[in-house]
Amino acid sequence: MMITLRKLPLAVAVAAGVMSAQAMAVDFHGYARSGIGWTGSGGEQQCFQTTGAQSKYRLGNECETYAELKLGQEVWKEGDKSFYFDTNVAYSVAQQNDWEATDPAFREANVQGKNLIEWLPGSTIWAGKRFYQRHDVHMIDFYYWDISGPGAGLENIDVGFGKLSLAATRSSEAGGSSSFASNNIYDYTNETANDVFDVRLAQMEINPGGTLELGVDYGRANLRDNYRLVDGASKDGWLFTAEHTQSVLKGFNKFVVQYATDSMTSQGKGLSQGSGVAFDNEKFAYNINNNGHMLRILDHGAISMGDNWDMMYVGMYQDINWDNDNGTKWWTVGIRPMYKWTPIMSTVMEIGYDNVESQRTGDKNNQYKITLAQQWQAGDSIWSRPAIRVFATYAKWDEKWGYDYTGNADNNANFGKAVPADFNGGSFGRGDSDEWTFGAQMEIWW
């Protein structure tokens, strides 16, 4: 008995050590931004985005507190085989008060198993909700290839000249389909599951310092038995992507060409959309029709120009041509140079221009935006974070068209359509004006 009692403290210590080691193995990653800002004409900070554009130049032009908190852990490992559990909870508030209630979004919860298939060394099996191989332009917060959501897949299969990845994910639309009631009355209240099937071939070395990635995505509306879509709904579509990445000037340049059809055009990033119906009456549900095509040509990157200068840049042309004439032509160009006074202090400027032409009206909206920021960051790279910055932003815009969301679809035949700025004596778009804002912001990723 005495021997047992003497061994007990040692056993407890060993158990505590094991539990401590396991606790220390938890990975904590994430992203956050928050700050305070004012508008020159009075009131809180207002942000500037061109009507019809899918993004905006973000430096000194973000008006919310946003965070993603990721917890993950390698829960099992034997040799080169392992299982990893990953989670991500995100939230966004308007940064107007101390207490701002919000419903967090559970954006990731997945398990990734590496090297589980003997004859596919280096590959990963995964299932669950996941940010899946996302491609974006940081300076405009624009995701041009992103099929994230609940799904499953097999990735990084070594095929000799590259890595092959296969995945299936889902994005549902509210009110996407109906069941038959009586007297030809349909009640569009059932969600429609939109499935996306993704095939990618990446890391193909085609020139010194250059790699090529090719991808095909097929999206479709997956209806339940005895349900139907509204007439004209976009049932399926394709997205084709080619991306060349070149190492240059201690950074990279990415050149991207994408072509999409029908349900893959509205978001243009790989998620299927077009079966959703915002109104019970299918007579007024025309606005979900996105049959047509999209072409996107994009070049972006980040480079170092000597010891003291870094720069991000982007140039993009996007043409969404829809059968219902509600598409757009959008082109944007911008730069973000950074001058480093010390390894932790810099001055950053961002200059961006957007131009969006309405397919329906032929009119154009444009905006110039310039931001000057003094910044303190954890390192001497344009990617170094955390960063604390004080900024001043000036924007000038001239908008000739907007979307008509007055009333509702039952009493407005133009609901959701592009109209000229002065349509029917109204005021659509943001008109011709300018404004400036100033404030302070922190940004961090880890």
Rank of each mutant, 00 (worst) to 15 (best):
A23P: 05
H29D: 11
A15E: 07
L59P: 01
G17R: 13
K77E: 09
T437I: 12
Q112K: 15
H300Q: 07
D158N: 03
F423I: 01
R134L: 06
A202S: 15
V14D: 01
L120P: 15
A233S: 08
F131L: 09
G175V: 12
G149C: 14
Y353D: 12
A418D: 14
D410H: 13
F180L: 04
E108V: 11
F48V: 12
A302V: 02
V137G: 14
F83I: 04
G43V: 02
A260D: 00
A32S: 07
A25T: 01
Y218N: 02
K417I: 03
T102S: 12
I36T: 05
A152S: 14
G439V: 13
T169N: 15
I288T: 14
I140L: 13
G402S: 00
A21G: 04
D80E: 11
G160C: 15
R430S: 12
S177P: 07
D319N: 04
L59H: 10
A285S: 12
N226D: 00
K329N: 02
W145C: 13
M139K: 05
T50P: 11
I140N: 11
G429V: 14
E205V: 10
I3V: 10
I288N: 04
H244Y: 05
D325Y: 08
P208T: 12
A90S: 08
G327D: 01
G237V: 09
L154P: 06
L59R: 15
S20Y: 01
G209D: 04
T51N: 11
P121L: 09
D319V: 04
T393I: 00
F428V: 12
P337S: 04
K254M: 00
G416S: 09
N408K: 10
R130S: 09
Y259N: 05
G431S: 13
K163T: 15
G162D: 03
A16V: 07
K254R: 01
N321Y: 06
R336G: 13
D187A: 11
N183K: 06
E78D: 11
Y313N: 00
W38C: 07
A418V: 12
S346N: 03
G60R: 13
G215D: 00
F255L: 11
D380V: 10
K417T: 03
W383C: 12
V314L: 06
T124P: 06
R200H: 01
S275A: 04
N222S: 08
M345T: 04
N115H: 14
Q49K: 12
G334C: 02
N408S: 06
T437N: 15
A285D: 09
D310A: 08
Q377H: 05
K114I: 06
D432A: 09
V159I: 13
V256G: 06
F28S: 04
W330L: 03
G215S: 00
L295P: 00
M345L: 02
T241I: 01
I382L: 14
I335V: 05
I185N: 05
N281K: 01
I303F: 03
V18I: 02
A25P: 02
K329M: 00
N194T: 09
G362V: 06
G315A: 04
N183S: 04
A392T: 03
P420T: 15
A67T: 07
A94T: 05
V137L: 08
D432N: 13
N194H: 07
G42C: 09
I36S: 06
D231V: 05
E173A: 08
V18E: 06
G175S: 04
T102I: 09
A90D: 09
D136N: 10
A242V: 02
S427R: 15
S275Y: 00
G175A: 12
A174V: 09
G276C: 13
R360S: 11
K364N: 03
M312T: 10
L372F: 06
M19L: 09
K340R: 03
S178P: 00
N110I: 15
N290S: 04
T65A: 01
T342P: 04
T265I: 00
N110Y: 05
G113D: 02
S358F: 11
V314E: 07
D198Y: 11
M312R: 09
N183I: 11
Q96H: 05
G276R: 10
T265N: 07
R389L: 11
H293R: 02
N97Y: 02
L8H: 12
S20T: 04
V216F: 14
N194D: 10
S179A: 14
G151D: 00
K369R: 04
V196F: 10
A413T: 09
G232V: 11
I125L: 15
G327S: 03
F142L: 09
G425C: 13
M294L: 10
G30A: 04
M1I: 08
S384L: 08
K396N: 07
Q45H: 12
V26L: 05
Q258K: 06
E282G: 10
T65S: 15
